[in-house]
């Protein structure tokens, strides 16, 4: 594992840093990196949080780290089966503290598109679709998303389609961490091997970097936890994250 950050370790660890003590935190389908972030937080942070996931797990003790982030092994050792209807209802009644939700495009207001690139009716690329976001983004107390690419085609001024809108709290890319403040995504920190100017140039929406600083490097505990979760680097290879 490198001394500072790979794009992969940057995303997983900075997602984990959004997790807070005693909160209910959820990871979903198609979400290997948030799944790893929740597992990393469980291993390396000295506080309790309730980890629930799309496989129905409640504070599970998975016997392995699955490639599929909805794998039933994520409910192994669980104290309950809290199935899909339950975690959606928990969210819409305002009791979900932190949701990790996927996105293809993200705009400066923290809205997301997971539906289509191009016109919805004549798509250039048909994307996975509505999923959790349209209901969870406006109803979870906080939501965070991530992208493995940091570019103006991903972080856009205008979405091709607004699939989900609402309470986006944080966004992590291989080179930056954004936090929403007063309705706009604001740069919180950037990859220490990159520059503020590069982050601004590679972001499609206008950002204010005034209060931003380089991201503190991984702690020994964070580094060890990620190493233990991905000992052969399989997840890192699959994620194929480039700093660009």
């Amino acid at each position: 594992m490198p001394e500072t950050w790979s794009g992969f370790s940057y995303i997983v660890t900075n997602l984990a840093r959004f997790i807070r003590p005693n909160e209910v935190t959820f990871s979903g389908v198609n979400s290997s990196m948030p799944m790893l972030a929740c597992m990393l937080a469980k291993k390396s942070y000295d506080f309790y949080f309730t980890y629930i996931n799309v496989a129905g797990g409640v504070d599970p003790k998975p016997t392995s780290v699955p490639l599929s982030s909805s794998d039933p092994v994520l409910a192994a050792g669980s104290t309950a089966i809290f199935a899909n209807e339950d975690f959606y209802d928990l969210c819409t009644r305002g009791r979900m503290d932190l949701c990790f939700l996927g996105a293809a495009q993200i705009d400066g207001a923290g809205q997301t598109n997971v539906s289509a690139i191009g016109d919805w009716h004549n798509p250039k690329v048909r994307l996975p679709g509505g999923g959790g976001g349209a209901v969870m983004l406006p109803t979870a107390r906080r939501s965070c998303t991530w992208r493995t690419e940091h570019s103006p085609r991903v972080l856009v001024d205008r979405l091709d389609f607004v699939t989900a809108s609402g309470g986006m709290h944080g966004v992590v890319t291989p080179i930056a961490v954004f936090i929403k403040r007063e309705g706009r995504l604001t740069l919180q920190s950037w990859h220490p091997e990159k520059s503020l100017d590069e982050v601004i140039a590679r972001t499609g929406f206008a950002i204010d970097g005034t209060d931003a600083s380089p991201t503190p490097g991984p702690t020994d505990e964070e580094r060890a936890a990620l190493q233990a979760l991905d000992p052969d680097g399989e997840f890192e290879r699959d994620a194929d994250v480039s700093l660009g």
């Binding site: 009644r93 607004v162 699939t163 609402g166």
Partner: peptide, 9 residues
């Protein structure tokens, strides 16, 4: 259905 506010769906 809860949520969906601001979504184009």
């Amino acid at each position: 259905c809860g949520g969906l506010h601001g979504s184009a769906l």
